[in-house]
Amino acid sequence: MMRTTLCLATTVAALSLVSSLNLTNTARANDFPTQDIRLVIPYGPGGATDIIFRLISQEAERDLGVSIVPVNMAGAGATLGSRNVKDSRPDGHTLLGSHDTIALSKLAGMVDYSYDAFEPIALLTQTINIPTAHANHEVQSADQIADYVHENPGQVRFSMIPSSTDHFFWAQFFQEVGIDMADVRLVGYPDTGEQVSALMAEEIDFAMFNLPSGGAFFEDGTFRPLGVAHPERLDSLPDVPTLRELGIEMDHSTSRGIFAPKGTPQEVLDIIAAAYGQALENENLQSRIENEFGSVVRFLAGDDYLEFLEENEAALSAAAENIDFQN
């Protein structure tokens, strides 16, 4: 079973937090939920975000006593789904399962709202991001990228999906290692599949992947992981150092959580958070999240989640200063 020390620590913390979110008689007196819950996922079916939310929700509905019905609502850079939930009745029966894209969309000028347009319920998982090269590339680890760019100004190609997580990843990485954005070529692709194909064809030098998107290619040697943007090494990549081990003070992950429309009562938020926290105590579910999707379970709710989102948005805002969203 793939299990990082952080995962173990946060799972223990989750047990304590779930206990503090026990369903009280007062909350149950409100008779929530009174119907099935609609979980809007602002992406198409089959991706890591879709599957992870479905897996956890199937377990969480056992505690809630109603079905949690996933609704894929892709479009408009994941803002079609988020806007639908934002404008829904704040009664807890419509939720949003999303990640950092909520803040990214505002920073990119796509929408005029961010996390503060919702009631954050709980952080569930984090998928660790990994800078990657094709197997024939001369760069062997992430701490060599800056020198390679300085030796080949204007020639080094980095793939990204405009205004998405990897766009911000590279902006933050360049800032951390001292690379001038004017010295690199950012090549935009519509989706991860196109990026995989481009790196296979050696049309680009570097891409940002994670275990769901790149794990099979790391395993067969097609791609080379250059470092792990996480405080600790991943059990599935034990020989790949963290960026911090390489002298790059940077962590980066895709952080998935549950949100409700603004104004949803706190007792309802607590009931939902407790159900999802209880779901994440399931060891088989933890194993699937970690082994199949290269993610760590990290449950935060209440003020802890609010603080996490504030720090997350501040870091993304700093990275956005180095991004020209018009290009």
Rank of each mutant, 00 (worst) to 15 (best):
G154M: 11
E292D: 15
T4D: 02
K106R: 15
I128R: 04
R3A: 05
S163E: 08
D116E: 14
G257Y: 07
D270F: 05
S141N: 14
S213N: 07
L199E: 04
D235G: 12
M73W: 00
G215Y: 05
E307Y: 04
H134E: 09
L104F: 10
G77P: 00
N284S: 15
E249D: 15
E249L: 11
L80G: 00
Q175M: 03
T11R: 11
V69Q: 10
L64D: 05
A274F: 14
L17S: 05
E307H: 11
G65W: 09
H230F: 15
V18I: 11
Q58L: 12
D191G: 02
T24D: 03
E310A: 14
Q144C: 07
E290A: 15
K262N: 13
G193K: 01
A14G: 10
A135F: 13
T132A: 10
V196G: 00
A315W: 06
E119D: 10
A48F: 08
L107D: 01
M1G: 12
P190L: 06
Y148H: 14
P70D: 05
F218D: 11
A14Q: 02
D116Y: 09
T101I: 13
V139Q: 03
S253M: 08
N129M: 14
L15V: 07
E151T: 05
T79R: 00
L246E: 01
H134L: 10
L8G: 04
E138Y: 05
P131Y: 07
V196R: 01
G263R: 06
F223P: 09
V228A: 06
C7S: 14
T132I: 12
D112G: 09
T49I: 13
A48S: 15
